[in-house]
Design a protein around this nucleic acid. Structure first.
Lengths: 200, 200
DNA sequence: AGCGCTTGATTAGCTCTCTAAGCATTTAGC
DNA sequence: GCTAAATGCTTAGAGAGCTAATCAAGCGCT
């Protein structure tokens, strides 16, 4: 069975099907599938250069700014500290970065790219651009823009919901994640005229 | 640092920033974040009923049709067999389902819901509906529809790319995943008039 | 009947992510 | 100035997903 068989039932039964079979998580489902697809597409490309997807996330941040603490790095990347910790440990082993303590604090650990880590940028960035180009191929840029806007509002909605109902730590995290994303979008808007070729 | 600081640099420098800081995976990033948010929102709700997110995925399929093999179940759920296997093992322990061998085959294992597993549906489906309702709150339904369409094309694009470049097994998997999603959308369209309240 | 390909279930082991809980250091309040 | 709280790093352990490899059963061909 490679495909769900076309359903010969009437519209009425279909309605019941869609009520009962949880139609309402379809968009969540679609988002999840596209996320997995995009991730895998990048992953296979990165793998050829011996970089895992997990490392990519942190390299992206560090290429922009290194010499920051693990905590800051976690927030920029939108991931929890233990995740960051283990990724950094393995990246350090691979020689992409160094963790250093600076004299003014014995607590904080600052993360610096090595030349090797910095050079990955030239090789890796085009891979991400390629994935992106493939993904949006043939789609009206206006639709992509709408999608981006919609997703952003969805993230906001969920963040707000969490902050109302649940665990404040998680909500704060979501909010920070959102702030970072907002900034991306804001900068994107500012640089619109001159960077249309890079907008996706 | 809870937020990336507003960048005081000129538009020209910003342009370089957006070239170099990999602007092109922003939409991927947005998709990933919304996926994580949605998943967590559902997860916290499911947790109150002692159901994990991983179980939800399979329950959804089984509520529609049980008595299928693990292999079929994997394909319907869009997950690999080992993932299915371990999820089923723990769900069986929890008493939500049974794995039975039928007389006509000593190879295949058929999965049946127990009454307990079947009854979860009434409790759990509203949780997913709630998450969804929260997520799309305040968003123009037309934008949501555009987003759905766009994501679907993106999945198609990525699937096609994989089938051209890479590993045929993975591409076939993507294609099946896509077929299933297409059917969902097709059924959705068919039942449009009568189910607008349920469309998301 | 028997040899080999195919298919389904399983095992092993990896990655990425999380929560919870620990320890060490720094900061704040009395 | 010293204890208490907050902050940052780390460890431990779990869940969800994957690939690769193994094993067993069924099927196909001669």
């Amino acid at each position: 069975m490679s495909t769900r068989k076309p359903d010969p039932r009437t519209a009425d039964i279909m309605l019941r099907h869609w009520r009962e079979a949880v139609p309402n998580d379809r968009i969540a489902h679609l988002i999840k599938d596209s996320s997995r697809g995009l991730q895998r597409a990048l992953q296979t490309r990165l793998a050829k250069h011996n970089v895992s997807f997990g490392h990519w996330v942190f390299l992206r941040v560090l290429w922009v700014r290194d010499g920051i603490t693990q905590r800051e790095l976690s927030e920029e990347a939108g991931l929890m500290e233990p995740t960051t910790f283990s990724a950094l440990t393995s990246m350090e082993k691979l020689g992409y970065l160094e963790r250093r303590k600076l004299p003014h604090s014995r607590k904080n650990v600052y993360v610096f790219l090595t030349p090797a880590g910095r050079q990955l940028k030239k090789k890796l960035v085009p891979l991400a651009e390629d994935v992106n180009e493939v993904a949006v191929r043939g789609i009206d840029p206006a639709d992509v823009a709408t999608t981006r806007r919609t997703l952003l509002v969805m993230i906001e909605n969920i963040a707000r919901d969490e902050s109302e109902h649940a665990d404040p730590a998680r909500a704060a995290r979501m909010q920070r994640m959102l702030d970072a994303t907002d900034n991306e979008v804001a900068e994107d808007t500012d640089s619109k005229k001159s960077t249309d070729a890079f907008r996706v």
